[in-house]
Design a binder for these strands. Structure first.
Length: 269
DNA sequence: AGTTCCCTGAGG
DNA sequence: CCTCAGGGAACT
């Protein structure tokens, strides 16, 4: 479940491995991982260098030296690693691009992720970057929807990069019940929530993200933030603040974890 | 704005 | 065997 902190960690670890290097041959092991389907990366990538590697929401963005752009979305189980070309490829490796004597490899068993060719298009439908967002901006956007606050935070057009883990963690840190109606969130709550989102995301980036199952960085290393989770995947366990029992409910088809005592539904303070 | 589906591996 | 995990698109 790579979300903003995991994707940022992939970008951070990928950067030094690609800097100053050019792509070589492309080995496409599955054609349907590239969108649009008629883009042939083996004719566009070899000889190109990455001028800038960045993150937007949960996307890893590659800007190429010919002005074209592509991005990788890791979905649920995606991995973007650089390994020795002599290292055997893992199962479900859908694309490999030579980088000197190494390979940039995209592995994704569940195939919820993919590689997306943008060409010269710089537009995207994503909401603001949460780390650069101001609380008034968040509040403004929350006012536009009557969905549960948890569902709203998962909407990439409302704010980019937050997934199930960090939505639950941020709502806990802001002491907001996940079922609060978004447009009823008070300015004070938006302020707390905005600060909580930034705090949680920054801390997770410092830990190299959360590895529950598949997530690894470009060097194949796992993150460490999972041991700092306060609510996510802790149903039935004691709240680290009040000792009460962490609850699990389903909101918008997603499992949602919270502390019923710390996150009161009528929280107005 | 809520529901269904895609996909595979893990765990019961 | 079965169910569950979930990002996001495509429905209703």
């Amino acid at each position: 479940m790579p979300e903003l902190p995991e994707v940022q960690t992939v970008v951070n670890t990928l950067q030094p491995l690609l800097r100053g290097r050019r792509f070589g041959n492309v080995l496409r092991l599955r054609r349907d991982v590239v969108t649009p389907a008629d883009i042939d990366l083996s004719s566009t990538l070899p000889g190109r260098a990455v001028t800038e590697l960045s993150r937007r929401g949960k996307r890893v963005i590659f800007d190429l030296d010919d002005g074209n752009r592509l991005y990788v979305h890791l979905g649920m189980t995606g991995q973007l690693t650089v390994e020795s070309a002599r290292q055997p490829r893992k199962p479900h490796c859908h694309l490999a691009v030579a980088v000197d004597d190494r390979e940039l490899r995209f592995v994704d068993p569940r195939r919820f992720g993919g590689i997306f060719w943008c060409g010269g298009d710089r537009d995207d439908p994503l909401g603001p970057e949460p780390l650069a967002m101001r609380w008034r901006q968040l509040h403004e956007r929350l006012k536009r929807t009557r969905r549960a606050i948890k569902t709203a935070l998962l909407d990439q057009q409302l704010v980019a990069g937050i997934g199930n883990i960090y939505a639950d963690e941020a709502l806990f840190a802001a002491r907001i019940h996940p079922l609060c109606i978004a447009n009823q969130i008070t300015p004070e709550q938006s302020r707390r929530l905005c600060a909580a989102i930034k705090r949680v995301l920054h801390r997770a980036i410092e830990c190299g993200g959360s590895s529950l199952r598949d997530y690894v960085d470009a060097n194949g290393r796992r993150g460490g933030f999972q041991s700092h989770h306060r609510v996510y995947d802790r149903a039935g366990m004691p709240c680290r603040v009040c000792g009460g029992e962490i609850a699990r409910i389903v909101v918008g088809q997603r499992s949602t974890h919270f502390c019923p005592k710390c996150q009161s539904r009528t929280n107005r303070k």
